[in-house]
Computed example of a mutant assay.
Amino acid sequence: MDASDMCAGEALEGMIDTLHARGRLRVWSLIVTVFGDAIVPRGGRVALSVLQELMARLRIETGAVRTAMSRLAADCWLERERDGRNSYYRLADAGRHAFDFATRRIYAAGPPAWDGTWLVALAPGGAGNGVRAGREQAMAELGFAQAGAGSFVRPFADIPELTEDVPPGLLVVRGAALREAPDLAALWELDELAAAYRALGDNLAPLAAALARGAGLAPLDAMAARVLVDHSWRRIVLRDPGLPAALLPADWPGEAARARVKAVYAALAGPSEAWLDASGLPEQVDAKRFKARFGGI
């Protein structure tokens, strides 16, 4: 069957098949997606039974959900609360900073604006292997490219975390370059990201085509599809260094993927939010902020 002829329900089942075909499923990561996408905008607290219903639609067993929730609580991402015989989970204060930073990246309208200046970070020598490895990972998560031993660089963006979350002990300088190489994007490994963006666009094509024809999904199915779309996008965009458009290759597929994700997400927003309402979650804390996702849905 051609992707354009597939109904929305068939497309959703195919997406669930793909989720389980990736290998061992990290249920905790999927739940993090649910919290960031749907729970935090409604206050950050949800009944375990609601999560179990949603995960069951994604063919994830109750025991796996409980194990994942226990892990997230042990790692201080979530806090467990009891209300009679019911269990609730709330986003812990310790995890809110990371959630907020990730949310801005996931739902950005496009590449960040750039004034042409750069951030350069330099680390003194003498650090042990463990310290160096942790520092390099932290800098990569902030979109810095390693330009040499203990040296990191990235285009400046007006994002507080780019300087606030730099590991301690580094000298950080912002300024204009006196000379720039012709292919600065080569400092970052973009080929794998580009392939992931193209694959995501292809994987969403059946559902996007069905929704564009006016096909609909039941509220629970819409919420399940929304989680899968958001999770797939999140897995890629949080590995993306977030380069400005001026530094990206001419054939960069990231924005085409963003446009498709936005269109599908916008079509799913209404019925999926209806499911959250019916499941007893509080109203959104800031409905305008939610509607502004991806530049406006």
Rank of each mutant, 00 (worst) to 15 (best):
A109S: 13
P182G: 03
A278N: 02
E164S: 14
A113C: 04
A181T: 08
S4Y: 08
V40W: 05
E180T: 15
W114K: 01
Y88E: 01
A74V: 11
Q146R: 13
G175M: 11
G143F: 00
P112A: 06
A133I: 02
R22F: 09
E192V: 15
G43R: 03
L170F: 15
F152H: 00
Y89E: 02
L281K: 01
R66W: 12
D2N: 13
R239Q: 13
G175L: 09
Y197Q: 04
T103W: 04
A274M: 09
T67V: 12
G125P: 09
R45F: 13
R71H: 12
Q284F: 08
T62Q: 10
H97W: 04
A210T: 09
A147V: 13
L211H: 10
R234F: 08
M69E: 10
A149P: 02
L30T: 14
E81L: 14
A246V: 06
E10S: 11
D221T: 09
M1Q: 06
L122Q: 08
F99P: 00
A224N: 14
W77N: 12
R235H: 01
A263V: 07
P112R: 00
R226V: 13
E136H: 11
M223G: 05
E192L: 15
D2V: 12
Q284E: 05
G254W: 09
M223N: 05
A292L: 03
A269P: 01
L187G: 08
T103R: 09
G36F: 01
D93W: 10
S232Q: 12
G295S: 05
A68G: 14
V264G: 06
W118H: 04
M6T: 15
G43K: 02
A205E: 10
Y107F: 15
R66F: 12
D5C: 15
S87P: 00
A222S: 10
P41N: 02
L207W: 12
L30R: 12
H231E: 00
A73M: 11
G125L: 05
A127Q: 05
